[in-house]
Design a protein around this nucleic acid. Structure first.
Lengths: 260, 260
DNA sequence: CGGCGGCTTGATTCGAGTCAAGAACCGTGG
DNA sequence: CCACGGTTCTTGACTCGAATCAAGCCGCCG
């Protein structure tokens, strides 16, 4: 299940730095300032909720280890996963800005996780001193929106095989952004089903299909991408929606408005 | 096809005001300031593109009359509609902030439309004087994101009937926000198909189904909702994701960050 | 009048869901 | 070390909703 989870401690903080870098934050000082705010550090075991549905956020939560998902309970007992969260991601950034439709969304751990929390009051103070940091957080929100939009495109259209391939591509790409390579995706088939809206059975058949074609390794019991190129081809994946660097120029424009 | 298109002129500007109000903008002065920036006014006939796929935006475009859609060309020749745009909506607000994935998105007129344009340079200057206005535009972006997220939930899940009903509910609600009542939705069946990802045939059968149950009026040749309550019930529609007022409190929090 | 584009309708095919049962794995405790 | 129960993964048989294909129909405009 791991390859992600290391001993929680000094080493575990890295992903946040990586994330901030990927958001275009240059200064080392700013990054360290944010890190310093992460006080309480909590372990959450797989299946537990990290953020409950209707809690008012007094602090920001950041994922340090493991994989979590933002999901919504459905009437039928199932759940729709809206987004996956990887180490370095902020769990409830969206919730501050966008109280969810029916208030039924929550964040849960898909693997054993470690999360850190940051008091809002302290965050605000730090943001005033380092405006670059606020910008980075805003970009994080934008990135989430971008991913969300891409899901819409992917989920509604095309055959199931393509959907799954696309999702795997996204996860692979996002893992690499935070420095985790190797192509192992430690997520259960049921979780994939909840994310795509497909049935677990169908997910299984698709994975086997991909294994037979050599795209995934035969290693059952884990999803391991062995032929990346084919996967990208099957998915019709274009990762540009994940690349912040390319988007920065545009954002500068918008900043003149609300920000200053 | 109409009920929307009036003589373009003084009267046509109203929707923008309505929109700004719905975004929580209080001051009359600010609203007028924005209106004053709308210089060039252009008619676009149905089927034409309002915003091409890969144009760099030197000005902001606002829809004054008619219905447009933000869409993406698909490989197979079809298109996926990401969002409908109604009078008062800004066509390319999203494009400033989020250059779209493959750069293949564009905005096209679904009915005959009138659009106004605002130079970015002038907009920026006005925003500096009226920060309330910038806030309203930011909220508009958030609203779009909220709608987009709700589509994800709706499109991937549930039977086709529910999807269509939900979409009709959304349109109905958004029409009313800008002061257009009467329950007529002047959109072709093919457009509905492109928005939901269903086939045109299926859309047709569903509409007939709804007509037989008395939810839509028998008036073929147009979609006219006669039993709103049933429609909402079928759709499982909860319009709260469209109501900005309820969301304002949360946003105030976020403002302390990037904005000041 | 004669096209043409949007709507309607039926027949057929196919992908994906559901149900149901079996197999591989994991942690636990004897 | 092995037996046990729970969870996840696999596999097959059946069903059903929606896509596709293929005509026919209406109203509009030249």
């Amino acid at each position: 299940m791991t390859g992600l989870a290391g001993p929680s401690g000094v080493h575990a903080v890295h992903p946040v730095i990586w994330k901030l870098r990927s958001l275009g934050l240059q200064g080392e000082a700013e990054a360290q300032a944010l890190l310093a705010l992460i006080k309480r550090q909590v372990d959450v075991s797989r299946g537990q909720e990290i953020i409950a549905a209707s809690t008012s956020p007094t602090h920001l939560t950041v994922l340090l280890e493991g994989i979590a998902c933002l999901y919504e309970k459905l009437e039928g007992g199932g759940r729709q996963i809206h987004a996956f969260q990887l180490p370095g991601d902020f769990c409830d950034l969206g919730r501050e800005v966008l109280p969810e439709p029916s208030g039924t969304v929550a964040v849960a751990a898909l693997t054993d996780c470690t999360v850190g929390t940051i008091r809002h009051s302290e965050l605000d103070r730090t943001l005033e001193q380092h405006s670059e940091l606020g910008l980075a957080l805003w970009r994080a929100t934008m990135l989430e929106a971008s991913i969300s939009r891409e899901w819409l495109h992917n989920v509604s259209r095309g055959p199931a095989l393509q959907q799954v391939a696309h999702l795997l591509c996204e996860l692979l790409a996002r893992f690499e952004v935070i420095g985790i390579h190797g192509g192992v995706i430690p997520i259960g088939q049921i979780d994939l089903a909840d994310a795509t809206g497909l049935s677990a059975v169908q997910i299984n058949r698709i994975l086997q299909n991909l294994r037979k074609s050599g795209v995934l390794s035969d290693n059952a019991r884990a999803i391991e991408v062995s032929d990346r190129k084919s996967l990208v081809h099957i998915a019709g994946f274009d990762g540009s929606y994940l690349e912040i660097a390319a988007l920065l120029a545009q954002w500068q424009v918008q900043l003149k408005g609300p920000a200053n």
